[in-house]
Amino acid sequence: MTLGHRDYDMRPPLHPFTALTAAACAAVVTTAAAYSPLSVAVALAAVFLAVRRGVAGRVLPAAAVILAPLCLSLLVLHGLFFPEGQTVLAQWGPARVTAEGLGFALELGTRNTACVLVFLLFSFTVSVPDLVSALAGRRIPPQFGFVLASTLTLVPAVAVRLDRIRQAQETRGMVVRRGLLSRLGALRLQMVPLVLALIDDAGSRAQALDARGFGSRGPRTSYREVADPPAQRRFRAAALLFAAAAVVWRIVASWPVGVPS
């Protein structure tokens, strides 16, 4: 029985596993191919989809925060120091700019960008309740779904709580001065109440969950059912086969010399 949750939605809903499979396969194929034009194409496709789904405003800043330090570090590291490089473009003391080093930095930079964008697109578009109920329908421990959903709801709650603890301690006279000791002292005044409250809450939550049969074994029923059209199942199977073929091709193509296969 499908509860008519999605029936009002005009778009054909994407099953969470379909989106996850697409993201994972795109990342695996990009990694296996190790071809920077393909990485760039995947990254651009992810940006295009993010714009179309209206999440570009959240995906792109999140990706920039992750990728900017990583790509900058790759550029400095491989651009200046690449002992394996042969084609030296410039040299200052120990630092040598080599064509191979720059190529390697470009290759890994685009690959990391593509993978990060694809996964962020998945996590910013997936509906967490759908994902949790889809997970519960498979042979995945129900605790996993609980941990996932509980964490995603706990993060904003903790931010609010930390703010309240800080205000309470400030009214009691907590002043953060410049010195390290003062800062660490202020940190202790905020951390201990936060940790204590969270662990205490967890204890009472455990009792409430156990009273409702959380720890018992056996299959679970869910009020929420996520439609899984056959076309999407076929797409998932095809994507997984394609990714597996790409991995096998890469392993056969560059099996290290000297290791018995």
Binding site: Q143, F146, V147, S150, T151, L154, V155, V158, L194, V195, L198, I199, D201, A202, G203, R205, A206, L209, D210, F214, G215
Partner: peptide
């Protein structure tokens, strides 16, 4: 269960 409910707490911490 008492340990499972601590895992989200640990992650947030």
């Amino acid at each position: 269960t008492s340990t499972v409910v601590l895992i989200p707490v640990a992650l947030v911490l």
